[in-house]
Amino acid sequence: MQVNVYLAGEIHNPWREQLRRQAGELSLPVTFTGPMENHDRSDNIGEEILGEQSSKIAKDEAASSINNLRTQILMTKSDVVIAFFGEQYKQWNSAMDAATAIAMSKPVILIRDPKLHHPLKELANKAQVVVETPDQALRALAYIFES
Rank of each mutant, 00 (worst) to 15 (best):
Q2F: 00
V3D: 00
V3Q: 04
N4G: 13
N4P: 09
N4D: 15
Y6E: 08
A8F: 03
G9K: 07
E10R: 08
I11M: 07
I11Q: 07
H12I: 08
H12F: 13
H12G: 14
N13L: 13
N13V: 12
N13C: 12
N13F: 11
P14T: 02
W15S: 06
W15Y: 06
W15D: 06
R16V: 09
E17D: 10
Q18M: 14
L19N: 07
L19H: 06
L19D: 05
R21C: 13
Q22F: 01
G24A: 09
E25C: 06
L28K: 03
P29R: 02
P29T: 01
P29I: 04
T31G: 14
G34A: 04
P35I: 14
E37N: 05
N38D: 08
N38C: 04
N38K: 02
R41G: 10
I45W: 01
E47H: 03
E47D: 06
E48N: 09
S54Y: 04
K56W: 10
K56D: 11
K56P: 02
A58R: 03
A58I: 03
A58T: 00
K59R: 11
K59M: 07
K59P: 00
E61W: 05
S64I: 01
S64D: 02
S64T: 03
S65Y: 05
N67P: 02
N67V: 00
N68H: 13
L69C: 08
Q72L: 15
I73W: 10
L74D: 14
K77F: 13
S78W: 06
V80L: 12
I82N: 01
I82C: 06
A83Q: 00
A83L: 02
A83E: 00
A83I: 02
A83H: 02
F84V: 00
G86L: 00
G86P: 03
E87M: 11
E87L: 15
Y89C: 07
Y89R: 15
W92I: 15
S94T: 14
A95H: 11
A95M: 12
M96I: 15
D97Q: 15
D97H: 11
A98K: 03
A98M: 05
T100D: 11
I102R: 10
A103S: 15
M104K: 10
P107I: 12
P107R: 13
V108R: 04
L110T: 07
R112W: 06
R112T: 11
D113T: 04
D113E: 08
P114E: 01
P114M: 03
P114S: 04
H117L: 13
H118F: 15
H118A: 15
H118L: 14
P119F: 01
L120I: 09
E122S: 14
A127P: 09
A127R: 03
Q128V: 13
Q128M: 13
Q128A: 15
V129R: 07
V129A: 09
V130F: 05
T133F: 01
T133Q: 00
Q136M: 09
A142N: 01
A142Y: 03
Y143M: 11
Y143R: 10
Y143N: 12
I144H: 07
I144Y: 07
I144N: 06
S147F: 09
